[in-house]
């Protein structure tokens, strides 16, 4: 599709058009413009109301200026969020409860712990399912069914039961993350462990390899690319789990707690900045996993696509 202009020396415009960066930037820019316009549109009702009550004169210019700098806007302008972010990320002491870094760290730690639990559980389940036919038949449908149960529904109960067993703080949140993120890992690993085809398995048989040899030397290496694909999905889900887990636990620390507090007190800018931090954290986590993927695949002999 990109070689429409082949034969003619591509001009600057065409190179920009058929590249990747320019389209992405265009779309980002249009989202930004829409956002600013939306901020004016959504905040204007309340502002006009306010002007009329105070009987102040107003024109479009003042309205736009005010709409982008309201105290508690319905939709804050991007630069307000940036200011709030700079203030709460850089301006505050990291250990202070007002610092977003502090809250992000709380969420990150339960995300990572849950991710670790989920990875271990997911791999164990996958190994069991691949090797034991009974498990494949009996467990697999329930693993799928487990994901149709909305986790938030069970979260309070998990907190209650674990609290009774003496587990509080990080672990219940991590377990909720684990519940969400083991699923893609199990599915991906089952697919990966089954990916060696019959020829390769027969070859191993001709070497008179034991089943543990087949597992460690054929199945595990074959499953690594699948594992990393599902790890990328799982780490993003694990973050969702950690944030969601903070809602019903009545947590006062963490990004989810920031969202909850922001919605109680109508602090929209606070909600948005927590969301932005959470988004960056998600992207960072996925990026970190894909770095690990590249390094591992290079170690294994450079099968990178």
């Amino acid at each position: 599709m990109t070689d429409i202009g082949a034969g003619i020396t591509p001009g600057l415009w065409h190179r920009l058009y058929s590249g990747k960066t320019f389209p992405v930037l265009t779309i980002l820019l249009s989202i930004l413009i829409l956002w600013y316009a939306g901020a004016v549109y959504m905040n204007s009702d309340r502002l006009i109301d306010q002007y009329e009550r105070n009987k102040t004169d107003w024109d479009m210019e003042i309205l736009i200026e005010d709409a982008w700098s309201m105290e508690r806007p319905i939709l804050p302008a991007p630069q307000q969020i940036v200011v709030e972010l700079i203030d709460t990320v850089l301006g505050k002491n990291i250990t202070s409860k007002r610092s977003l870094v502090f809250h992000a760290w709380i969420t990150l730690s339960s995300t990572l712990l849950g991710f670790a639990f989920g990875t271990i559980l997911g791999i164990i389940l996958a190994v069991g399912i691949v090797h034991v036919q009974t498990l494949d038949r009996s467990l697999m449908p329930w693993i799928i069914a487990s994901q149709t149960i909305p986790i938030l529904a069970i979260a309070p109960m998990i907190i209650v039961v674990l609290g009774h067993l003496g587990l509080t703080g990080l672990v219940p949140k991590a377990i909720i993350s684990m519940y969400l993120c083991f699923f893609p890992i199990t599915i991906g690993m089952v697919k990966g462990l089954r990916s060696p085809d019959i020829l390769q398995l027969d070859l191993m048989k001709t070497y008179s390899a034991s089943s543990s040899d087949v597992f460690w030397k054929l199945r595990i290496p074959a499953s690594i690319p699948f594992l990393f694909t599902s790890l990328k999905v799982a780490v993003a889900i694990s973050l969702v789990g950690a944030i969601v887990a903070e809602l019903p636990t009545g947590a006062i620390q963490g990004l989810g707690a920031r969202l909850l507090a922001g919605s109680y007190y109508g602090q929209t800018i606070q909600i948005w900045s927590a969301l932005v931090v959470a988004s960056f954290m998600g992207m960072f986590l996925v990026w970190a996993v894909s770095l690990a993927e590249k390094a591992t695949l290079r170690q294994m002999g450079g099968q990178t696509a």
Partner: peptide
């Protein structure tokens, strides 16, 4: 990679 669920409080508003 973005936890979109977080949009919930804003939508409720």
């Amino acid at each position: 990679a973005v936890p979109i669920v977080g949009i919930a409080p804003i939508m409720v508003m």
